[in-house]
């Protein structure tokens, strides 16, 4: 089973996770820029984080045979802090980078005017840079947040078929499907979606345009949830080809819209220049 995790925050994960992911079949991933749990207080803090997504983290991933790509954006939660808002002005220099395959995560957290501004501005940046957009749907007041998100997308220059609506669930999947956007589902141990509910949604809505991710980060989460969904799909009667579509071909097709996803990825077992992660010599 080959797996492309289209949303996982590896900055917060360990090398054991990378190894376990590789063993489970993960060969490529996208790490969206997002909130780190501790609020940032200045643009410089974002820039170091973005630089890590373009430098150190891909290097770490390569040690485990996993191709690492990222999305760059000012996340909705921190878009509300005026100290962080100037990040928007610096985004263009990041959005030209080779491994940036979308603008994201953008979207709504509390649905404030500042979030409206950041979302609209960053949808425009995506259109300007030929990138698709990864749009986070809010945890609270989710259906209203989805509708407001879709309104802003419709008003933007980015067509819905270049938008991935993420963190969907039973209450939002219908309207998201009707919008023409790509459909992202995050599988979590306790919140968001779980494997069996995901299988039920796949039975009801099919496998087209559906992406499944672990969204694993610094909170209670599981970087192997993608594999567990694949196993649950097979147990429920889906074919190997269905699993491959959801866990590999769909994320490749969506992020491939950037024109920056190398088609020769990945080489299983590859170590970067034969090296491993070393910390002081071992």
């Amino acid at each position: 089973m080959r797996i492309f995790d289209p949303h996982i925050h590896m900055t917060s994960r360990t090398t054991d996770d990378y190894q376990a992911m590789y063993d489970a079949g993960v060969r490529a991933l996208v790490e969206p820029s997002f909130w780190l749990g501790q609020p940032r207080t200045s643009p410089a803090s974002f820039f170091d984080y973005f630089d890590a997504l373009l430098g150190w983290e891909p290097f770490r991933a390569a040690q485990y045979g996993i191709a690492h790509h990222c999305t760059i954006a000012l996340n909705p939660k921190e878009a509300n802090d005026p100290r962080c808002a100037p990040v928007l002005d610096a985004l263009p220099r990041y959005l030209v980078k080779d491994s940036v395959v979308a603008v994201g995560e953008i979207g709504y957290d509390s649905m404030t005017p500042a979030e409206d501004t950041a979302l609209a501005a960053q949808l425009q940046l995506a259109a300007d840079h030929g990138l698709p957009a990864l749009v986070h749907t809010p945890h609270r007041d989710k259906l209203a947040g989805l509708r407001r998100t879709l309104d802003v997308v419709r008003e933007s220059h980015l067509p819905p078929e270049r938008v991935l609506l993420d963190h969907l669930n039973e209450t939002t999947v219908k309207e998201a499907t009707d919008s023409g956007a790509w459909l992202g589902f995050s599988i979590y141990p306790d919140t968001k979606m779980d494997e069996d509910r995901m299988v039920a949604i796949l039975k009801a809505y099919g496998t087209e345009r559906v992406l499944v991710n672990s969204a694993a980060d610094w909170g209670k989460s599981d970087p192997l949830k993608t594999r567990k969904v694949g196993d649950a799909m097979l147990a429920a009667g889906f074919s190997d080809d269905d699993v491959d579509q959801v866990l590999w071909r769909n994320p490749v097709a969506f992020y491939g819209l950037s024109g920056r996803l190398p088609l020769d990825l990945p080489t299983p077992g590859a170590l970067h220049e034969g090296n491993s992660i070393l910390r002081g010599g071992e």
Binding site: R93, V96, K97, D98, G259, R260, P262
Partner: peptide
């Protein structure tokens, strides 16, 4: 703004191969 060649410097990998 960065000169156009500097943007090419950033995007060289995807246009010419890594």
């Amino acid at each position: 703004a960065p000169p156009s060649w500097a943007l090419r410097f950033a995007s060289a990998g995807r246009h010419c191969g890594q």
